[in-house]
């Protein structure tokens, strides 16, 4: 025997619907966590990444002994956390003698690891160490610009991969309408060599230029660091193909009563239905009124709801 089980509360239903797969996805959530050991550099870096993505990320603060994303069997609990928190991006920090200040950036597809890039962090400067006008500080959740500089991002496989992951990690929600007044941050990534990039977070200052386009000025606000690519893992080819599927284009409805004219431009026809003079809906049947009050009105007598006391003129 089967039984239909539905949540009893609307809040839970809405929460489940949020987690369900969607035709058009807008944004991914990020899980930030670390391994057995982290250095102070990594600790502050992870917190700062969390601050950069505060509205769509989850930060775990406990040690995780059994997470080793690159090893087989080391991803089970990571995948479970991804399912639990509904995150499909993760940033994992660990520190060891072999790989000091290690940062693993990765993505999941259907709560299974999709791809991974491991970078070492060098020359890290935190947000606090930058001095700038605090009015310029980027706001939480604003849409960032991305600037990738250097041909290595195209020619070197690892950096190409890293570029894609960094874009996915920091781009935030995919939007169609953008408020130009809200642009206030840039991520600048510069390839220094074939395995090293310089990553910096900058604020934007828009200056008048006399034209429509303002003059851009970048102010470094941090964090900034060098990333040295260590290991990386590409997704399975078949998995990649599946994950790149997009929603089938909806058939456009035929636009009725609109004609395009070469001279007059867009012309529309409007049909106005007959005025039903005989059957005008009664004002008493307004939906917004409470039932008992409405019924009282229909009767037209008896019920008189207590009027608010009005100020009376002194007589």
């Amino acid at each position: 025997m089967m039984r239909i089980k539905t949540p009893k509360k609307g809040r839970i239903k809405r929460e489940l619907e949020k987690r369900a797969p969607k035709l058009v996805e807008t944004g991914k959530k990020t899980l930030i966590l670390h391994g057995t050991k982290t250095s102070s550099i990594l600790n502050s870096l992870l917190t700062e990444i969390y601050h950069l993505k505060k509205n769509d990320s989850v930060k775990y603060s406990r040690k995780n002994d059994n997470i080793r994303p690159f090893e087989s069997g080391g991803e089970t609990s990571l995948e479970f956390y991804s399912l639990k928190t509904d995150c499909s991006l993760f940033v994992y920090g660990s520190h060891s003698k072999k790989r000091p200040n290690n940062l693993v950036l990765g993505r999941t597809y259907d709560h299974h690891i999709y791809d991974l890039v491991e970078v070492g962090v060098e020359n890290f400067r935190s947000m606090g160490s930058f001095l700038y006008d605090k009015k310029l500080a980027p706001r939480i959740g604003s849409k960032p610009f991305f600037a990738f500089i250097g041909e290595a991002f195209e020619s070197v496989d690892e950096l190409k991969h890293l570029k894609e992951i960094l874009l996915d990690l920091f781009r935030g929600e995919v939007v169609t309408n953008l408020n130009l007044a809200g642009l206030d941050r840039v991520y600048v990534c510069t390839a220094l060599s074939s395995s090293k990039i310089f990553f910096s977070h900058c604020a934007l200052r828009l200056k008048k230029s006399g034209t429509v386009v303002p003059r851009m000025e970048l102010v470094e606000v941090g964090p900034s660091m060098d990333m040295v690519v260590r290991r990386h893992r590409h997704p399975d080819e078949s998995l990649r193909k599946e994950s790149m599927k997009t929603a089938p284009e909806l058939l456009k409805k035929k636009e009725k009563n609109v004609v395009k004219d070469a001279i007059q431009g867009k012309i529309g026809k409007i049909y106005i239905p007959d005025q039903k003079v005989g059957s005008v809906p009664l004002a008493n049947k307004a939906k917004g009124v409470k039932r008992e009050r409405r019924e009282a009105k229909m009767k037209g007598e008896g019920y008189k709801h207590t009027q608010k006391k009005q100020k009376q003129d002194a007589e």
């Binding site: 610009f145 991305f146 600037a147 990738f148 500089i149 250097g150 874009l167 781009r171 060599s193």
Partner: peptide, 12 residues
């Protein structure tokens, strides 16, 4: 769409 630009010509 992503407000992204890439300069593939720069090189140190």
């Amino acid at each position: 769409g992503n407000l992204l630009a890439f300069n593939p010509h720069h090189q140190f």
